[in-house]
């Protein structure tokens, strides 16, 4: 059952990611990205990351993608021109990418050859309780620095998107 679920959501994620790359209209790419994020949230759940799965859906598939769709709507972005690909990239790019992926897969198999398979429920440490405890003890300083980062991001976004830029 776990393997079947992994296969289904991995297939959804890969197909949506390919669709993101090949679509020319940005709104199609944005909806494909939502599909990737939803599938990844399911995979996080399989890996025992309850909190991260929920945060993925709320922050990524919710907030960030709404921002993207809003900007696409605001700018009235249409289909883009066909990208100019040089023949060298055309005939060398795809084989090199496949070779890279093959090497990565081989390396991953070599480094962790016989680890126990992923069983749903085998790892219980990903709850909000555990993450909260870790966040407010070991990772307290990075967590507080993050709040400064978000404040700067808010100010930067306001300054950049003001009416008079000059």
């Amino acid at each position: 059952m776990d393997a079947l679920l992994f296969m289904i959501f991995a297939a959804i994620a890969v197909i949506c990611a390919i669709n993101l790359v090949v679509q020319t209209h940005p709104i199609s790419s944005a909806l494909s990205l939502v599909g990737v994020m939803g599938a990844l949230a399911a995979l996080y759940l399989l890996l025992g990351g309850e909190f991260i799965a929920a945060a993925q859906l709320v922050v990524y598939a919710g907030a960030i993608m709404v921002l993207f769709v809003f900007v696409i709507m605001l700018l009235n972005a249409g289909s883009e021109r066909k990208p100019v690909i040089k023949p060298r990239g055309k005939y060398l790019g795809a084989p090199l990418l496949l070779v890279f992926l093959g090497m990565m897969a081989y390396l991953i198999q070599r480094i962790m050859p016989a680890s126990a398979p992923v069983v749903f429920g085998a790892f219980q440490g990903g709850t909000a309780k555990e993450i909260g405890r870790s966040l407010f003890t070991v990772y307290l300083l990075p967590f507080e620095v993050t709040s400064v980062l978000i404040l700067i991001a808010i100010l930067g976004a306001i300054v950049l998107a003001r009416k008079e830029v000059d």
């Binding site: 776990d2 992994f6 990611a17 890996l47």
Partner: peptide, 21 residues
Amino acid sequence: LPAAVPPSWYLTLSAILFALG
């Protein structure tokens, strides 16, 4: 198909998604 997949498959999926990105 085995009953459960090893973690390396998840890492391979991650590599594929990164390459597509």
